[in-house]
Design a protein around this nucleic acid. Sequence first.
DNA 1: CCCGGTCCTAAGCGATCGCTCACCCTTGCC
DNA 2: GGCAAGGGTGAGCGATCGCTTAGGACCGGG
Lengths: 215, 215
Amino acid sequence: MSTAEETAGAEAQPWGEVTPDAARRLLLAAVEAFAERGYHATTTRDIAGRAGMSPAALYIHYKTKEELLHRISRIGHEKALDILRTAARTEGSATRRLAEAVSSFVRWHAGGRTTARVVQYELDSLGPDARAEIIALRRLVDAEVRGIIEEGVRSGEFDVPDVRGTTLAVLSLCIDVARWFNVNGSRTPEEVGALYADLVLRMVGAGRTDTARAQ
Amino acid sequence: MSTAEETAGAEAQPWGEVTPDAARRLLLAAVEAFAERGYHATTTRDIAGRAGMSPAALYIHYKTKEELLHRISRIGHEKALDILRTAARTEGSATRRLAEAVSSFVRWHAGGRTTARVVQYELDSLGPDARAEIIALRRLVDAEVRGIIEEGVRSGEFDVPDVRGTTLAVLSLCIDVARWFNVNGSRTPEEVGALYADLVLRMVGAGRTDTARAQ
DNA sequence: CCCGGTCCTAAGCGATCGCTCACCCTTGCC
DNA sequence: GGCAAGGGTGAGCGATCGCTTAGGACCGGG
């Protein structure tokens, strides 16, 4: 309970809800392995090895290797949705809420890149049922961002000709951070979050009345 | 030479340079399979089967399965670089050239999604040497876009506080099209290209003098 | 002391993987 | 016709995969 701080650093304890301790260790090992090599290139022996167990131990806590990916993907998407919902419910203008949504969403993708990579890019290694469940969660994520943009358009803060397309682009921009972000690079997750929030506000035409004319 | 139009439609004949005919059929089959299932989930038997050959035929033209991915990745990156270079050399303002670069780059990622998916997302299934070669090509891609943005900043057309970060975001936005674009969706590659060119021009602060005040 | 339950391991099963080998068919040149 | 060369196949090798089975170490309660 007090020795869990040496593992990742950037990720707090997002897997605290995985109840048997050995099951959590296995799941954390699977996240690392899937992020490094991809789902199909990862062997169950590798996962068990990283968790300090024998290959057979995996099947005490999970029925198949795919169930591991399913659990990771569901928990991760719920976390991502939670982040966006929190940002969408903060006080202030649509501009403020969109900036908060983008910067926190990007911070999660950059800081927890290991998890985000699996969550965002290993989706179609899932079977049809599991994939359908995850896709439903992704639609909720999309609706959350689209809601903020629509409110900004209604209030006159934003100038967006194509709301659905712009929503798609904003999410796409944030998600792709998990692909390129380098932990040893020169940018911190906070810096990327701030940069991206600014870029997205430009995309929706926000701030035209108070900053565009500054130059 | 005249029966090659029934295959993909959107992709012209980008694999014309692959000289033995059987080798090209195998490479095309590999692109399809890698895009659908990913490199590691694709078997050499599947590739050979799609090309209408026996599993052993693959090894007459390619030494390993990885060599197939390497060839696909190199040709694809050269094509992407060629598209950006053509756009960067067109006549006109930096605004015009950036719009042309983004829209043609996006059209390639959307229309040739099968190829682009493999090129952009299966990169680290390559071995160290091949990956290093591809990464060098990607740096040239980055430099091409960054060059246009820098010229726009120098000419006063753009307002970009962080050139490297914005370049990264622009490329990231375009590349991620290969992940989400759906051929059966409601948008054509041309529409997405036009939308994205507009969004990118907003990101770099172009058009402030003649369109921002329209509303 | 025995017991059932929980957690884990050693060993290995059947299937499938990337890849190879021995051989065959077609083609063009003499 | 002879015959070398290149493009192809059927069969299968060794390795490794996801997963299963039989059994052992440990534990608290009677």
